[in-house]
Design a protein around this nucleic acid. Structure first.
Lengths: 206, 206
DNA sequence: TGGTCTGTACCAACCAGTCGGTACATACTT
DNA sequence: AAGTATGTACCGACTGGTTGGTACAGACCA
């Protein structure tokens, strides 16, 4: 029993690993099942034992990508309530930049890529993606509002609006560094984003 | 001769029309030659008389998209030298927003889409796209510098950097409104972009 | 007549998805 | 303990349909 569960996890995970890797650079349509099978060393019949279609694989990958992003980038930046809220945002921005630097500007944002590829062509994915970006935005909105009640951010500015703008600009920055293959592009954009925040920042402490 | 040129233009243009329309919503890989042929009513042999491959069609479409963008959105906003440079930028931002509104948030930015889909998978397209974004950015940089020498924009800020940021943020904004299908998202982002510019704006006239 | 166009039949490669069958561990009988 | 049945995990050949691309015959026009 233990072995069977282990075995299942193993194979399924192998498929997910390979597919995530491939789809990150080639996209959903650009990655064929055969590619995934070759890369993971899993047979076709076995694949369809774990996933009932390529679409389901797509959703599983998206889930996995999101979980990774939330656990490795979003939460670590926002989880600590003792840290000043604007610090948390800065740390998050740096985290996204760092991820992109490590990837050498290859792949871009997996969520952004899928959004671009599938939003107008697959309503299910579009909705899922929209939820994800909303969650992301809300995390930022929360921190910004906290900064306002805190006194470190001007109460005049619309936190939700600002958060929306931050998410959009970050996605755009990642895309632009993916096209140019120059990390400096992202550095510039993150710098501008910080500068923008600084304009609404009052000198107040946490 | 006149007729033959006309005829060529006709068929070639029909193909380009259909392909541009289809690829705008379904992407490069998501649009098959047969789709294009069906939509344009052109035979296969005829297609390969005008284009030697799907790739060449892709380049032709990209050229066409760029020309359309430059002629219909970029140049009309920046061409008039009598207009104050910051006004030109505002007009440009509004133009992009309006285009997106007219499209009901469907399709997104054709250049951004291709960039996202092909940058890591097709070096030729990546380079072409990178050039395009550079040209776009330079138009903005020029206007910003003019605003600086003009006295209406703070000389402290880096025009090139700011232009890069504007392009990236716009692309991100378009993408986000494509995912959410809400034009308000773009309105917000354009609003924030204008607010950001306003921070560096001195009250000086043109 | 000779180049410019165009439609049709065709191709091999590839696509997602299905199929019949195997190996093997466990559970249920008797 | 032996025999039978069941569920899980796996394989690779195969299917129908689609892909980008070619071959070629004929039509149109100069």
């Amino acid at each position: 029993m233990t072995t069977s569960v282990r075995a299942e996890k193993h194979t399924r995970e192998q498929i997910l690993d390979a597919a995530t890797r491939l789809m990150h650079v080639s996209g959903y349509r650009g990655t064929s099942l055969d590619d995934v099978l070759r890369e993971s060393g899993v047979g076709k019949g076995n694949f369809y034992y774990y996933f009932k279609s390529k679409e389901e694989l797509g959703y599983a990958i998206l889930d996995r990508i999101v979980r990774g992003f939330v656990e490795r980038t979003l939460e670590p930046s926002f989880a600590d309530p003792s840290r000043p809220p604007l610090d948390r945002i800065h740390r998050f921005l740096d985290g996204v930049l760092e991820t992109q630097r490590q990837r050498n500007c290859v792949g871009g944002c997996p969520m952004g890529n899928l959004a671009s590829e599938l939003s107008d062509v697959h309503e299910g994915f579009r909705q899922r993606l929209a939820e994800i970006f909303t969650h992301w935005r809300e995390r930022l909105t929360g921190a910004l509002r906290e900064a306002q009640s805190n006194g470190s951010l001007a109460p005049a500015c619309d936190a939700g609006r600002l958060a929306q703008f931050l998410v959009a600009s970050l996605e755009g920055a990642i895309l632009m560094s993916k096209v140019t293959k120059e990390i400096q592009v992202m550095e510039m954009c993150v710098g501008e984003l910080k500068a923008y925040l600084a304009h609404y920042t009052t000198g107040a402490p946490a």
